[in-house]
Write a protein that binds this DNA or RNA. Structure first.
Length: 623
RNA sequence: GCCACUGUAGCUCAGCUGGUAGAGCAAACGAUUCGUAAUCGUUAGGUCAUGGGUUCGAAUCCCAUCAGUGGCUCCA
């Protein structure tokens, strides 16, 4: 329910190297040859698996194409091993590479379908769903009267909507590959059986497959967990606990710079910062409604047995901010909008299997804000938040983004106040248009308490991340009894906008580590310059320069280790330090620095003042 | 939480079918004082994630626990 600076969608890669569900309508992909190839490959996978286990029976579930390939879910007599996967892949190639065959479609009655899949429990369930005119393979309601269709190929028949390639000749066996095995609940329901899912991918040409695999490899090289270790930014320790990152001095320097940047910018935009601590009486979350919905994602209760009071580690800021608003006395409409921002660390009890590097942690620092305003101020406040977010994303070179505007849909899950909805939705739309922001509308995707806008940004590898969010909340302010006195002298309930810019510092750091591949812009780099004395007699001069640079606000450091110059340059380069300043006799005498960048570029010999000017201009411009 | 896999020195990894551990980098010490991506030598460092079990004997086999990885589910 309440967003409270939503921890953004944790899907590791809401991405697509080729297509994206988020940005573009499915139809384009769903009608492509690639889609058909993948869909048909999934059928061949199913056939291969059945043959592999024969004569033991295999339960087949569903096998759709997905963004980067396809999968098929099975109920199998035993667990699959990586070796099985190789064997199954071989068998698939054999099927594709053998005598060409056709994928032929036929329309059948539910009765016929039941006979065909008499011993397939999952298929029978799907058929029941189709017959009731109800549900597709995801259990989602279908529009219109479903026709039951089967696709036949020699040795395998599947209940399937299609489309498929006409002939196996259209699939290149060298462009098909199985990727991994995973568990998946039947119909995604954790109360239903766990099936074994085989992920695979297929392309039209082998080169495309190779390119895809290369991209995966590149992504692995940038993995923030790997870079975090190599660059010495953070650690996880069993002694402290899972999901609680420990930041090194360098890592904390990054966090600090990130927070400082947003804090200063927020101040410039007219936001105020507040602080509301880390512990809250459980009762507040009962009243706000969070306890009911999110108790299992909160850390267990801390109890003051003597006084009979129960506390919780704070998992979100909104109830605290709203309480603060109320405690500050009666508010006039003249005081609004009030914008409370806070960089507090929140604690959420994420389930063990959900933790993942920095992108999913149990202690997270949100750049959270709650804006208290009148209904008529929604548009201007939304607009202000849009501008702030745009500026921040641009600073981080994440300017390739789109906004998903989630609106209410049919049905009764939404707060019943059509007037407010109309007003808010119109305000959001107008503000997006006025700011020239590309967006698409997702009807039925709103939270029940109000519409929202989520920012989806593409990183350097084309992967999409949901980062910023702005959500309108009609309900929580009322629940917690917030009021302001309007022009009419009457008490009114303020509207609250929940807003997060980077989401959480931890997760955003993970994203930008991968986005920049560890090559942080100079303004953000934990170490901005390393001074490399060529021999010991240059150390002192280097130290003087370092002091001067530090005095000017730069993060500079002298490598006075016993290594040779070449090794120092190599180390600094691998640590991705933006400027490497080499100092030998010539420089020491002339009072200069030989400036080299981490990319190996030679900037030449500069005076200390010139270097500082150069660096400061790059810092200012965000390079 | 669920399914599968993984867990050997700070890091990256080797150690076949059971016979009480090895390399490179990093570290410490010593030598070297060097012009744009790794100077040489010496030394030290591991109860092989933890706890049980099988065995004459376990890093190697079995069980449990913890942590990580890929997914599923969830995400205020």
């Amino acid at each position: 329910m309440e967003p409270c600076g939503v921890e953004p969608v944790p899907q590791q890669w809401v991405q697509a190297f080729l297509f994206s569900y988020l940005f573009y309508p499915m139809s384009e992909y769903a009608q492509s040859q690639l889609y058909k190839i993948r869909h048909s490959s999934a059928h061949i996978l199913a056939q291969a698996v059945i043959e592999f286990f024969s004569p033991e029976p295999v339960q087949i579930a569903i096998g759709p194409p997905i963004e980067n390939g396809f999968y098929y879910d099975f109920g199998l007599p035993r667990s699959l091993t990586p070796d099985d996967l190789k064997e199954i892949e071989k068998r698939m190639r054999k099927i594709i590479g053998g005598k060409p065959f056709e994928f032929s479609r036929r329309v059948v009655s539910a009765e016929t379908a039941r006979q065909v899949f008499a011993d397939q429990v999952f298929k029978l369930e799907l058929i029941d769903g189709l017959e009731k005119g109800g549900l597709d393979e995801n259990g989602e309601p279908l529009a219109g009267a479903p026709v039951i269709t089967l696709y036949d190929q020699p040795g395998f028949t599947d209940l399937c909507r299609g489309p498929h390639v006409a002939s196996s000749k259209e699939i290149n066996p060298k462009a098909v590959s199985l990727m991994s095995i995973a568990g998946a609940y039947w119909r995604g329901d954790e109360n239903r059986p766990m099936l074994q899912r085989i992920y695979g991918t297929a392309f039209e040409k082998p080169e495309e497959l190779e390119h895809y695999l290369w991209q995966l490899e590149e992504a692995r090289k940038r993995d923030h967990r790997k870079l975090g270790k190599e660059l010495g930014l953070f650690h996880f320790a069993e002694d402290v606990g899972p999901g609680i990152p420990l930041f090194t001095p360098k890592g904390e320097q990054l966090r600090y710079q990130m927070e400082k940047y947003v804090r200063d910018l927020q101040t410039k935009y007219g936001y105020d910062h507040v602080w509301t601590g880390n512990l809250v009486k459980e009762d507040l979350y009962r009243r706000s409604g969070h306890l009911e919905n999110y108790a299992d994602a909160m850390f267990p209760v801390m109890e003051d047995a003597e006084k009979g009071v129960r506390f919780r580690l704070k998992p979100m800021n909104c109830p605290s901010h709203m309480t603060l608003f109320r405690e500050m006395g009666r508010h006039s409409y003249r005081e609004l909008p009030m914008r409370f921002a806070e960089f507090a660390t929140l604690y959420r009890y994420e389930k063990s299997g959900e933790l993942s590097g920095l992108t999913r942690v149990r202690s997270l620092t949100q750049d959270d804000c709650h804006i208290f305003c009148t209904p008529s101020q929604i548009e201007q406040e939304f607009s202000l938040a849009l501008q702030l977010i745009t500026e921040v994303l641009t600073r981080y070179r994440l300017s390739d983004y789109k906004v998903r505007l989630s609106l209410r849909g049919e049905g009764g899950k939404y707060v019943n106040d059509p007037e407010k909805w109309d007003l808010a939705e119109a305000a959001l739309r107008t503000a997006l248009q006025a700011n020239g922001i590309e967006y698409f509308e997702a009807s039925g995707e709103a939270a029940f308490y109000g519409p929202k806008a989520d920012f989806m940004a593409k990183d350097a590898l084309g992967r999409e991340w949901q980062l910023s969010t702005i959500q309108v909340d009609f309900i929580q302010p009322a629940r917690l009894g917030l009021t302001y006195v309007g022009e009419d002298g009457q008490e009114h309930t303020p509207v609250v906008l929940h807003r997060a810019v980077t989401g959480s510092t931890e997760r955003f750091l993970g994203v930008i580590i991968e986005h920049f591949a560890g090559n942080f812009p100079v303004w953000l780099a934990p170490v901005q310059a390393v001074l490399v004395p060529i021999t010991d007699r240059h150390v002192e001069y280097c130290q003087q320069i370092a002091q001067a640079l530090k005095a000017s606000g730069m993060r500079a450091w002298v490598d006075d280790s016993n290594d040779r110059m070449n090794a120092k340059i190599r180390t600094a380069t691998k640590q991705k330090v933006p400027y490497i300043l080499v100092v030998g006799d010539k420089e020491a005498e002339a009072g200069t620095l030989a400036v080299r960048t981490r990319s190996g570029e030679d900037i030449g010999t500069l005076s200390v003042a010139d270097f500082l000017a150069h660096a400061q201009s790059e810092i200012a411009s965000g390079v």
